[in-house]
C-alpha cells in the first residue's frame, strides 16, 4: 500500500546495461550479473544465496498448503502498488485462506527485452518490502527474457508454501445455514485503481489499490475463532464471484443485506461513471469470512481491531433456501439475484 518511496533509499545498482537484454535470460555473464546485483541484494537469505537449482527446506510439522499464481497487470505501476507487490501479497493470501502460515515463495519473471532495469529494480524493492511485511522468504527463482513485443513489460509467477496449524479446517464447502458472512473492508479498490489508471480513460485523481498481505489478519481471526468455516479473498470477479463460489461449493444459499457492503466514496464515483458494479470488481487486500452465527460478533470485533480490516462488516448470512444462489435484499424491500459475472467488466454507456 505504498507509493514506491523505497526507491529513494535504494539506488539502482550499476550494471553494464540500462535495459533488459536477451542475454540477461541466457544463463551467461549477464544473467549472473542480474542475479548478483539486482536479485540477491533484495531477496537474499541463506537458502537463496546458495544459488542451487532448487531450494531445500525444512518445514514445521502439519499439513502443507501450496499455491501458485501468475501476475499480468496493465499498468504495472498503479496507485497504491505495483505488479511485484501484488505477486507477493496475492500468493501469500491464497495460502493464508485455508488458515496456513505462509513461509516460502518462489518467483519466476518473464521480462520483455528493453525493459528498463530501473523499473525492474523498483519492482524488486517493493517485493522485498512486501515479503518482509508478510514474513515470508523468497527462496528460489527464475528469469526468462523474451523478444520485445512478445510480452507486456514483465509477468511474474509466484508459488508459495505454508503450513496449516493443528485444528484448523477451512473449506469453501463448509458453509452452513445460520453462518454469518463477514467482509474485511471496502470493496473494488484494486480493480478500480487499475482501471482508472489505464491510458485513455481520462481520470485525473485516482483511487488506490488495497493490495496487502492478509496472513496476519487470518492468524488473529483464527485465534479468536478457530471454528471459522471458510475464508476467501475476493480477487478477480469480486465479492459476487467469491460468494457464488462459496454457495455452490457448500450447496447453500447466501443472502446479502444490500446496504451493508462498504465502498469508498471515490471508488463508488468511479464505478458509477463507468457503469461498473463494485460487487464484481477485484480486491487484493480483503477477505470474506463465513463463521458460525454465535461467533460472528467476536470475529467482527477482532477484524476491526486490525488496521487492514477497520471497516469490516457483517454483510449477510448463509441460508438453506435457494442453494447455489446469492441474493440481496434491496433497500425498498425487494430481492434480487447476485449472479456470477459473464466476463470482464467493461466500461459501459448504457
Amino acid at each position: 500500500m505504498t507509493d514506491f518511496p523505497e526507491t529513494l533509499s535504494c539506488p539502482v545498482p550499476i550494471l553494464d546495461h540500462d535495459t533488459v537484454q536477451l542475454a540477461h535470460g541466457a544463463g551467461g555473464r549477464l544473467s549472473a550479473q542480474l542475479i548478483e546485483k539486482l536479485f540477491l541484494p533484495r531477496f537474499g537469505n541463506d537458502t537463496l544465496n546458495r544459488l542451487e537449482d532448487q531450494a531445500t527446506l525444512t518445514l514445521p510439522s502439519g499439513r502443507v498448503s501450496f499455491s501458485t499464481d501468475t501476475y499480468v497487470v496493465d499498468p504495472i505501476f498503479f496507485p497504491g502498488g505495483n505488479i511485484g507487490e501484488l505477486a507477493v501479497n496475492g500468493t501469500v493470501n491464497d495460502i493464508a485462506m485455508n488458515g496456513a502460515t505462509p513461509l516460502f515463495l518462489s518467483v519466476g519473471f518473464v521480462l520483455e527485452e528493453g525493459l528498463p532495469l530501473e523499473t525492474l529494480h523498483r519492482i524488486l524493492v517493493s517485493m522485498e518490502a512486501a515479503a518482509k511485511r508478510a514474513g515470508v522468504q523468497i527462496v528460489t527463482g527464475d528469469t526468462k527474457v523474451v523478444n520485445k513485443g512478445t510480452c507486456d513489460q514483465l509477468y511474474i509467477n509466484t508459488s508459495g508454501i505454508g503450513v496449516v496449524p493443528e485444528g484448523v479446517h477451512l473449506s469453501a464447502a463448509r458453509c452452513e445455514p445460520g453462518d454469518q458472512v463477514l467482509l474485511s473492508g471496502t470493496i473494488a479498490d484494486h480493480g478500480m485503481a487499475v482501471l482508472t489508471s489505464r491510458k485513455g480513460l481520462s481520470f485525473q485523481s485516482r483511487v488506490h489499490s488495497d493490495t496487502a498481505a492478509l496472513n496476519h489478519l487470518v492468524e488473529a481471526l483464527l485465534e479468536v475463532c478457530p471454528r471459522i468455516h471458510a475464508l476467501r479473498d475476493p480477487t478477480r470477479g469480486g465479492v459476487a464471484t467469491t460468494l457464488n463460489e462459496l454457495a455452490a461449493a457448500s450447496r447453500v444459499g447466501i443472502q446479502l443485506r444490500g446496504d451493508s457492503i462498504p465502498v469508498k466514496p471515490d471508488v463508488r464515483g468511479a464505478c458509477e461513471i463507468l457503469g461498473i458494479d463494485p460487487l464484481y470488481v477485484a480486491n487484493e487486500g480483503k477477505l470474506v469470512a463465513v463463521v458460525p452465527g454465535s461467533e460472528a460478533e467476536a470475529v467482527l470485533t477482532a477484524m476491526r481491531s486490525r488496521p487492514e480490516a477497520r471497516e469490516a462488516q457483517i454483510i449477510g448470512e448463509v441460508v438453506s433456501d435457494h442453494p447455489g444462489t446469492v441474493t440481496m435484499t434491496t433497500g425498498l424491500g425487494g430481492r434480487r439475484i447476485v449472479d456470477m459475472p459473464i466476463g470482464e467488466q467493461l466500461p459501459r454507456i448504457c
Binding site: 425498498l332 424491500g333 425487494g334 448504457c350
Partner: peptide, 15 residues
Amino acid sequence: GGQTHSIIRNGIDQI
C-alpha cells in the same frame, strides 16, 4: 433500459 435496470435491481416491480 436504464430504468428497467433500476426497477429490477431495486425490486420496484415486486413492491
